[in-house]
Design a binder for these strands. Sequence first.
DNA 1: ACCTGAACACCGTTCAAGT
DNA 2: ACCTGAACACCGTTCAAGT
Lengths: 235, 235
Amino acid sequence: MSRSERDTQHHNVAQAAIPGRVPLNRDRVLRAAVVLADEVGIDSLSMRSLAQRLGVAPMALYKHVASKEELLDGMVSVVVAEIDPPMPGLDWKRAVRERVLSARHALLRHPWAPHVIESRTQAPLVVLDYMNSLIGTFLAGGLSADLTHHVMHALGSRMWGFTQEVFPTPQPPAERFPHIIEIASVGEHDDKSAVGRGCDDQFEFEFALDVLLDGFERLHNQGWTSTNPVRTASP
Amino acid sequence: MSRSERDTQHHNVAQAAIPGRVPLNRDRVLRAAVVLADEVGIDSLSMRSLAQRLGVAPMALYKHVASKEELLDGMVSVVVAEIDPPMPGLDWKRAVRERVLSARHALLRHPWAPHVIESRTQAPLVVLDYMNSLIGTFLAGGLSADLTHHVMHALGSRMWGFTQEVFPTPQPPAERFPHIIEIASVGEHDDKSAVGRGCDDQFEFEFALDVLLDGFERLHNQGWTSTNPVRTASP
DNA sequence: ACCTGAACACCGTTCAAGT
DNA sequence: ACCTGAACACCGTTCAAGT
């Protein structure tokens, strides 16, 4: 780092203590939005509340993001960029597994991320980078383009390391729902790992991920193609 | 049906032609909300627009639903109640498969249903009925309560017959995303079956569902338990 | 060039009042 | 008992104006 660069940084840091003196930029807006959403929840994140946090008029934000939708796209980009790069030297199955669990690690720090990612209509570029990289891992492992296509669909939003939880929070009455009660008691996992409401825990996620990856591997070994989808389930 | 009951019905039907004369009830509110959301989209469904459609002041709705959240719960209940009952005489795997595809048939008529179902914090009772019934099918098929628990988690929101689509709508640039381009061309399915934006098509859904069900069957045949999860993927 | 203030067209929901 | 109208505390976003 050159002397002038260091000075500029110090200058900015000094200005940051004086509210409103550091000019806004896109990155500052997006990072502040991520922090604010982490703190107060995505429902309480508004253009107005974000502007207030930044000590700026609401309309100042529109110089850096065209709309709230673009703000949400940008927030997704920030957290997806935190996902670790692929680990080298692993076979495709382990490589995908580790990558997805790394995505889980990065995204589940932000309880709002699952919902916001799934609500994107246009995937931000870093999202496509991640998907492109995952696809590359399957292809490098020898899976056909055909199988890889369907395997990526089957993986679905689980590629981000989360699944929206579908089980009810309160215990329902046993008379009407005997089967739910019957299976509810098994496998009591730690509630702490469920980040925010509506997220799975680690054991259930890995179980589902492994069922899928094992299935993909079996289809690959069988030479599965979409025009000749032979498939059996004997042990 | 007694004479007086018939007369009462005729009376109501006659009144229905005069807007605003039939007293509102919860069912009329919920059904109107479902129809309106089908027509204008869930984002344009507001308490005010629904009230206007019903020819009533916005606050009249609050006699029948406590809040907009409760309205959404009720709308989910309406569409989930349309799912066919389980088919008798099938083994557990076929029974689950048919039931889930029937759920798909019912829910995908309402493009907003996936998003709204996944956003429920408290599952409506008919949602628990459906889950209880699915669990019962696994248990009746001989799966342990242990395995069934994890299998239900792994099935996740796919039990409703849909998965949120994760692929981008516009074709991205080939230079930056070569692998996406490579697999994009395979298996061009009909776009018509993708109900609204963001929903999978039939082939991809069945592929993923079968990978999961085949995996569940294999674990069941192997005598899998959560404390002794032996699992291999040889063909 | 970058930010502001007022205004517009919406929300869900409260409250007190009408019939 | 059931519905209404006005009002409150919010939204995202436009526009014209400020420096």
